[in-house]
Design a protein around this nucleic acid. Structure first.
Lengths: 99, 99
DNA sequence: TAGGCATATCGGGAAATTCCGATATACATT
DNA sequence: AATGTATATCGGAATTTCCCGATATGCCTA
């Protein structure tokens, strides 16, 4: 896990918010058919909440995914993103010891 | 403490290294007259270790100081920088709960 | 297979960051 | 006062980031 890359990813208000929203998806997004805990939240919902264009949000999600902090599942025409809690924990432990 | 600003400050390899070097100054810098734990490390020593120009390091130290993670003391013609451990702890706790 | 919808990718203008050399400031010494 | 040394600030070229609109891709339905 490259700390500098992770900090770059999190040094943007919207990306940081997305990561935080995904901590408790059912609290931050309207209900959907699929179980949010299980599969995640689709791009459209995140875009709607973030109030930026679809292309921007799609790119931001890629940036977060590249760090490993979130992961995606494609189902039909939707891509669902959810947190990778193991990676988030690893990051927190790394910061705990390195900062 | 503005998380995004802190992450911006730490999303640069050199700045992150400086913060880490200052965790154990006597391990990372050559001996000096004044007590490093007490007063910190002067800009010249940090620049020497970082291998960037004086102006760049001076600016990086300002960026870190603006976040509150480090603080400076001017003594004679030297400016000594050291970690603000309380602020570093606060940051880690913030990350622990918010990420 | 045609059309619609969700998402990804591309190209780019504007703004921010990186890092430098030159210069200013502040203090110390002679 | 003049000089030397440590640090801060300024101006700028190169690079990166931000965020957009346009377009491509992939899947689904009629």
């Amino acid at each position: 896990m490259d700390q500098v890359e992770v900090f770059k990813a999190l040094s943007n208000k919207t990306r940081l918010m997305i990561l935080q929203w995904l901590k408790e998806p059912e609290l931050n997004f309207p209900p959907q058919d699929r179980d949010m805990k299980e599969v995640g939240v689709c791009v459209g919902q995140i875009q709607c909440k973030a109030q930026l264009t679809q292309s921007t949000i799609s790119e931001y999600l890629s940036v977060l995914q590249r760090t490993g902090l979130i992961e995606s599942t494609r189902i039909g025409q939707w891509t669902y993103y959810k947190r990778n809690e193991a990676a988030c924990l690893e990051l927190k432990q790394l910061i705990e010891t390195s900062i």
